[in-house]
């Protein structure tokens, strides 16, 4: 074992390195090689063939090109080229187990947002004085990492899905279910249940269909009911 490691570090013998010679004039080398290798009937057309320029050879694909970014915010198109817009399960495997610490972190965060007293007295009907206040805070909170299940929807196949929110955009929730599959749910056609430890909060998806960054300033109006 020790001998092999020594022989790895030693320089190659000269008998091997002599055979390698780098060719400076690569075009000359190619024509020489072709003249030797091809049958004599084809040698006359070598010069013609080499002169042809390949149109697609110079064309480099715009996508998948790794290029240095300047120190500026990426545009959405650049983000797409780098593959940073869509969280999908095929490229890098997302496991439900990996998301559990995120969910735990989210529960702690929600407790901080809503205050310690929230768990004891939850406003149950709109006449409660705290009702509007709590709604305002909920709409401003972040939903990445929340556990969600769908109760009602226009499309019957969506009902009953549940999972942890991975991505939250203007019109879409991406959730990761227990079977490690990421599903896309449109926001404006569903009624969702959010699980906060033992409390279930039910809300319309349509209320949330704003960009997550713009939701921080938005004023929420109570008492709207949407038709599904």
């Amino acid at each position: 074992m020790a001998q092999t490691s020594q022989s790895i570090c030693s320089i190659l013998p000269k008998s091997i390195t002599k055979q390698i010679n780098t060719c400076e004039n690569s075009e000359q080398y190619i024509t020489n090689f072709l003249q030797n290798a091809l049958p004599p009937t084809d040698t006359s057309s070598i010069a013609n063939e080499l002169r042809k320029s390949l149109i697609l050879g110079k064309h480099k694909s715009k996508w998948n090109k790794k290029k240095q970014c300047k120190g500026k915010l990426l545009t959405n198109r650049k983000r797409m080229q780098l593959g940073l817009r869509k969280i999908s399960c095929q490229v890098n495997d997302m496991k439900y187990k990996d998301l559990l610490p995120l969910n735990q972190l989210w529960l702690n965060y929600m407790q901080q947002v809503l205050g310690p007293k929230f768990l004891d007295n939850i406003p149950k009907d709109p006449t409660d004085p705290n009702w509007e206040n709590v709604n305002q805070q909920l709409i401003k909170a972040d939903f990445h990492g929340a556990e969600i299940s769908i109760v009602g929807a226009k499309c019957p196949s969506l009902i009953g899905l549940s999972g942890i929110v991975v991505q939250d955009t203007k019109n879409i929730f991406r959730i990761c279910g227990k079977d490690n599959i990421i599903r896309t749910i449109p926001k404006d056609v569903v009624i969702m249940n959010m699980h906060l430890k033992n409390i279930k909060l039910e809300f319309f998806g349509k209320d949330l269909s704003i960009k997550p960054t713009e939701r921080t300033i938005k004023k929420f109006k109570c008492g709207r009911i949407y038709e599904l």
Partner: peptide, 17 residues
């Protein structure tokens, strides 16, 4: 603050997230 921590949590598991 929460988003910052979540981002660090997911850094090694899923860079897109």
């Amino acid at each position: 603050n929460y988003l910052y921590q979540a981002s660090y949590l997911m850094a090694l598991k899923n860079r897109v997230a």
